[in-house]
Design a protein around this nucleic acid. Structure first.
Length: 195
DNA sequence: AACTTTTTCAACCGCGTAAAA
DNA sequence: CTTTTACGCGGTTGAAAAAGT
């Protein structure tokens, strides 16, 4: 019957999906005043949103340089490489993928990569109750096969070396021999030479 | 064509840390 | 120096879309 025993701060802030009006207000405000200082920005712009919400909306969606949609093969591989190195440091990983947000990469990893990793794992070690979690990149990962292991298993060494140093924004793409696999091909690979 | 299950992804939450008071 | 407030990050959720039956 009553409302917000809130901190007076975000007393009655809206939640849920952003409307087009809200988007426009935010875009317009930032165009005129710049981004940052999100709490006061939210108020000043007249948005009934928390600063947090504004920040997220701007960073992940409205910012002019966000690039959403299809992750390229290069990006897939880069994500795998960096995740193998750093674990779930999404923000850090995102810094190496221009236009991609931590949120998107995190989503991508969980839905497209982690799922398949688990599947692959189950395929070669089904009856194992508690497989060893490889100690990996400081953060706890939910997946039990690290991307590093997977890479090791799936990629020819020469290719790995190729990737690790300077990641190819432009590698010889259409060379005669296959240097890349699509993520689908990748996951369908046998994984049997893991003992 | 209608219903059910699965997948995707925008947005929320809590927590740790940094900055301000 | 201590307390409060803001920020940024990573984990998680749930509605909508897509895929399956």
């Amino acid at each position: 019957m009553d409302k917000k025993p809130r901190n007076s701060q975000d007393a009655d802030s809206r939640k849920g999906p952003w409307t087009m009006e809200e988007d426009l207000i935010l875009i317009n405000y930032i165009a005129n005043h710049g981004e940052g200082v999100w709490n006061s920005l939210a108020k000043a712009a007249g948005l009934k949103r928390t600063g947090k919400s504004c920040r997220l909306r701007w960073l992940n969606y409205l910012r002019p340089d966000v690039r959403r949609g299809n992750i390229t093969q290069d990006e897939q591989l880069l994500i795998m490489e960096l995740h193998a190195k750093w674990g779930n440091r999404w923000s850090k990983i995102a810094k190496h993928l221009p236009g991609r947000t931590d949120n998107e990469i995190k989503n991508y990893w969980r839905t497209r990569i982690q799922k398949h990793t688990k599947q692959a794992e189950n395929n070669y070690s089904a009856p194992q109750t508690n497989p060893e979690v490889p100690e990996q990149a400081s953060t706890n990962q939910v997946c039990t096969v690290s991307a590093a292991d997977l890479m090791e298993t799936c990629f020819p060494l020469s290719f790995q070396c190729n990737m690790m140093g300077t990641f190819p924004e432009q590698l010889p793409m259409e060379s005669n021999e296959q240097s890349y696999w699509s993520i689908e091909e990748l996951w369908s690979m046998p994984l049997l030479n893991v003992d």
